[in-house]
Design a protein around this nucleic acid. Sequence first.
DNA 1: CTGTTAGCGCGTTCAG
DNA 2: CTGAACGCGCTAACAG
Lengths: 351, 351
Amino acid sequence: MSSPRRITLKELAAQLGVSTASVSNAFNRPDQLSPALRERVLKEARRLGYRGPDAKARSLRTGRSRIIAVVLAETLTYSLKDAVASELLSGIAEVLDAHGHTLLLLSGRQNASQAPGSSSIADGFIVYGLMASMALVDELQSAGHKPIVAVDFDLGDHPAIHVDDEPACYAIAQHALQTPASRIGIVNLRLTDTPCNGPITDAHALLPTGQTITRSRLAGFHRALTEREVALEDVAMWNIEENTYEVCAPVLAEILDLPASKRPDLLLCMSDRIALTAVTLAEQRGIRIPEDLRITGFDGIEEGQYRSPRLTTVQQDSTEKGRLAARMILGLEPASPRLLTTRLIQGETCP
Amino acid sequence: MSSPRRITLKELAAQLGVSTASVSNAFNRPDQLSPALRERVLKEARRLGYRGPDAKARSLRTGRSRIIAVVLAETLTYSLKDAVASELLSGIAEVLDAHGHTLLLLSGRQNASQAPGSSSIADGFIVYGLMASMALVDELQSAGHKPIVAVDFDLGDHPAIHVDDEPACYAIAQHALQTPASRIGIVNLRLTDTPCNGPITDAHALLPTGQTITRSRLAGFHRALTEREVALEDVAMWNIEENTYEVCAPVLAEILDLPASKRPDLLLCMSDRIALTAVTLAEQRGIRIPEDLRITGFDGIEEGQYRSPRLTTVQQDSTEKGRLAARMILGLEPASPRLLTTRLIQGETCP
DNA sequence: CTGTTAGCGCGTTCAG
DNA sequence: CTGAACGCGCTAACAG
């Protein structure tokens, strides 16, 4: 069998009869030694199975690891299944890859067993979404001068990347209200102070304005409704805690199973997942879209467009959001707050 | 402003007038020092903003990082958008999280600029899918004695996790063939030796048997067809290189735009993504499912089930596959080859 | 229970 | 262009 242990730079230098510095330079600074020696070093390295400087030692020495961590507000298990988060990660990965960095995934909801400080290995942090617990993020902030970029929420005075949630929702609601609706419903996402999957009543407190993007989305809806002189108290409100079919389905079933005279004929949904669940459940019940029920979404995920009926929604470019965050964290882009625009997609669920 | 640099264990020890070992033990081995001293250390640490041992130095010293890397055959950008890969990652993340480990994402197709050896930071590797280039994987294999688990392909004599592709495809084809079909088509995924998006002709060489799971899937189809005495040369074959709507759509459009007399009335697809694209394009063309065209998929992704018509497909539990791989890499499960079973889902696209 | 010591593997001086 | 020396921050082993 081959040697059980990886050969070390020092050993390679000894083998070659040169100094460790030369071996190091052969890998890191070609201009610091003669091409001939460099070639000899690299050749001998290949021969002995030396794969270049050890990442752990190197990062201890240089202070950098070429690892960027993404801290997700939700669990990794959830985030990886969520189309919007996946697209964001996809955009991040694209840029990191192109610049020789790798991607470490962390969750703000990590199991308590997590070793604290384990995150200190990363060179920078992209923090996505409002954390239930700020413990990890607080740690990052006070842990030194590593760059931090926030996405979809504000974090101290770190640069934040936002989407124009309020105008986007104003625009889509305005579009929807061009056709008169008798009963309007809004299906919110994580809007209440305490967990709630079902109707929002007066008893519920909402999360504070400015804290969460869904509050901005609601503001956009409200502005359009008010402009059309729809009384907000006539608009039924529901809340959903998690953007998955399993969690959405019971709430939407409850809505769609209302007697036809009380069932909304326009549903403004805060995510495409919610809207798509509504479409599926409506189809199962023989409720016609858009004749009996018009539905709008938010996000513009592929699943909503590559189907029939296509979802009427607002498209945010999550991939580009990710690319931008990655470029910022790598210093390829000025670290200043950014607001991305969205695009109204007029599909068939709300013509 | 606060101190620009993180305080160090040694400095904290000096400040307290105790040895560095005691400080280290206060964080890592509570049983190795008196509760009183431990409390004093932790308190002073908090006061000075010391967040615990530095991950980089710690991992150099201990040789472990609590980081597990997943090496993906495709680009990260693609994999993160793919439902099957995302589910796998989701399962992996679930187990790693629960055991205080974190997840590093690498791609076998990484940009060339990637620092070699950067992967040596991880404690173990889950390698997913047949790599176009084995460069990275070769590096891992020779780089020491880190555990490696392969998923959906075989890698040296490392333990591999497989799904029963052949029997699964046999079962679904058998099911489909219970209803007579006039013209059968198979839409393959990454099956040809050289890239091809379109019909597979005699000029194409297929990837070698045993190398790729899609070859096993084809074998399952063939077994069922032969059993039903369908001549394989009467079965039209197409190939698709990437499991995305954008790549699938042109190929399927070509198929569905054939004159009705030549268009298949049964499409056996090697992935749900392919099948769903077929459904969408068929709907756009007014081709009735399943009356004019029956379609089967493979994977059992949620998108195929939470819609109408529901996809007839084979469900593999990618999440469980991920959990298993993670448990193996953490040594919570014997490191031996495993074969996971699948389940036939009879949806409406091929009753 | 506490302190001392010796590296983990490497990158970077600085003098030659 | 090269070689020697130092230390990045920490932990394991041992000595007291």
